[in-house]
């Protein structure tokens, strides 16, 4: 690994948490971390795969009320950096590096949130003295613990962890092949956790028909697409006159079907809003449609 690669990844690790706290451009997401680390390491394909897989693994893990959560972004940075520089299989990098790093990082997130309590107390003093500049300074200093809580571990791991990781990977690939294979299978299965967490959080009982619809549509279509692909590739190999390209199922198309269903539900919800059995707005349930329209006009 080159010194400039370590430098850029360290700076990015410090930046990503500030981005997430502030503008939330989504550059702090695991999948974006995969792309950026992949570009820096010169292996975009590996970065995108690791980032994409980690994104799916934590899909339903949101921040609620400021609770710390598993840090899949930092996990992705380190896994991509080592996978690209040592030549690890991406699935193996996910279960041996990305997941352990991601769950260890929770502790450092807690530490950063603790450290900032110190600045909050200094602000109390500054208020007493009408020291406006110091209030602002002590507030902005909070960025320090946040950024360092990510940048320091990433720097230490990248600068000094290479040999250790290489030794472990060599051992996994030779002496304990069964473990390496198992970890790869685990890497492929981990998105299941992300989906299950998301279902726990979403009103799945209310929307259960759409869960079935999304699953069956996709499983049938992807079987058809995969079989056509296999068939076409086989035919093209057997007969040179048989030409044509065969792609896999485009997920954007499936997402657009879902979007259409959501839009239908939204317009029905708005026009038939008065009939929905909601207790919170029971006092406005009696208003007629014209009144509903009026409220929306005010909104726009």
């Amino acid at each position: 690994m080159q010194w400039w690669q370590i430098l850029i990844l360290t700076i990015y690790a410090g930046y990503e948490i500030l981005d997430e706290l502030q503008i939330y451009s989504s550059l702090s997401s695991p999948v974006a971390a995969g792309l950026i680390s992949g570009i820096v390491m010169g292996d975009v394909k590996t970065g995108l795969f690791i980032g994409g897989s980690m994104q799916l693994t934590v899909l339903g893990v949101g921040t609620f009320g400021g609770a710390s959560r598993i840090d899949a972004t930092t996990g992705t940075i380190l896994a991509t950096a080592f996978a690209a520089s040592i030549g690890m299989k991406p699935e193996l990098a996910i279960s041996t590096l990305a997941v352990p790093v991601a769950s260890l990082m929770v502790q450092l997130d807690v530490l950063a949130r603790f450290a900032n309590t110190y600045f909050a107390h200094r602000i109390d003093k500054n208020i007493e003295n009408f020291d406006y500049k110091a209030i602002e300074r002590n507030f902005l200093m909070g960025a320090g613990p946040w950024a360092l809580s990510r940048a320091i571990p990433v720097f230490l791991a990248l600068a000094f962890g290479g040999n250790l990781v290489k030794t472990v990977v060599d051992w996994l690939n030779t002496d304990v092949k069964w473990l390496a294979d198992g970890l790869s299978v685990a890497g492929a299965a981990l998105p299941a956790v992300g989906f299950a967490i998301l279902l726990r959080y979403l009103p799945v009982k209310q929307h259960f028909p759409y869960l079935i619809l999304g699953f069956v549509l996709t499983t049938l279509l992807s079987t058809v697409f995969t079989n056509v692909q296999t068939l076409g590739t086989g035919l093209a190999a057997a007969d040179k006159k048989f030409a044509g390209t065969f792609n896999s199922l485009p997920m954007l198309a499936i997402a657009l079907i879902g979007l259409a269903l959501a839009l239908i539900s939204y317009s029905q919800h708005r026009s038939g809003g008065s009939s929905k059995p909601s207790s919170s707005s029971s006092n406005s349930n009696t208003v007629d449609d014209s009144n509903e329209e009026e409220i929306e006009d005010d909104e726009l």
Partner: peptide, 20 residues
């Protein structure tokens, strides 16, 4: 409500395609 419907639908789609 509409966004969570889309979310549930997409989870169904991803269960079918992303767990290898």
């Amino acid at each position: 409500d509409a966004a969570s419907l889309l979310g549930v639908f997409m989870v169904g789609a991803m269960v079918a395609s992303m767990i290898n």
